[in-house]
Amino acid sequence: MSGFIAGYIPLLDLYLIHLGLAFSQYIVLRAGVFSLATAALAGIGAYTAGIFAVKLGMHPVLGVLAGTVMGMAAAIVLSIPLARLRGVYQAIATVAFIQIFVSLNIYAEPITGGALGLNGIPKTVGTGILAIAAIAATYVIWAVERGRLGRAFNAIRQDEAVAASLGISIVRHQMLAFALSGALAGLFGALEAYHAYALDPNQFGFHLLITVLSYVILGGRNSVIGPVVGTAILIILPELARFLAEYRMVIYGAMLIIVINYMPKGIADTVRDAVRAGRLKRRGEDPA
């Protein structure tokens, strides 16, 4: 039995790290920014932590802290040019940002280890720390969502002009969402560094972007449960369908197409809305 559970620990660890990254993606979408920068921001956090550990021999706590701060700082800087762009142009700019990160990383070999990656990071982060970080991240997102900030994000996402006419500063709020997104990406990137022994620049490239975006699209973009559910499904599913391993990306793609077409709000939000509408109907009011 314990062997059975132990076999799934790596999967749980992967889930916890990716949940943090999913929240990083979620919070910018939530504020109406079509940024896909999470992958690179996680890379910045991870490499900062890795360099702190391998090249500078610093304590892991400092490394994680530095990774979080660097992720946040990079996100804030990135938010300045992005504030001038909208929609798909933001997406393109952030994809370019990821490519720049990966390229620079490969060229800066003396610092980052280049294409060979950064090896020999002491493994100091286990399931316990990852679980604490994931729960803390979930709590922060949940708290933001319930408060005034969450309402402002919703207002901006639904109608920027109206939000502005109600006194909501678009630039300031989107910068705040970016800072939060960058801190989350940096934190979980840094935890990944202390969890995985080694880092490879391509690990934080286009593939991670698609993966993290899929968690949010599949799970739902309008409540904290969305990323929790979406990440769980996309991490567990490939394991259940191991005999179809060759077709993993095909299944992945097919699921996304089905969900986008039939549940455009994502699985968790569709279920939640259905439950809510049922409750209103029972109370004899018009369903929303």
Binding site: R148, N154, Q158, A161
Partner: peptide
């Protein structure tokens, strides 16, 4: 231009931002 996805109360609460 209401925020269609929000409840009536949430719409009013957003108004406080100003």
């Amino acid at each position: 231009q209401v925020f269609a996805e929000m409840t009536v109360l949430e719409n009013l609460q957003v108004g406080e931002t100003a």
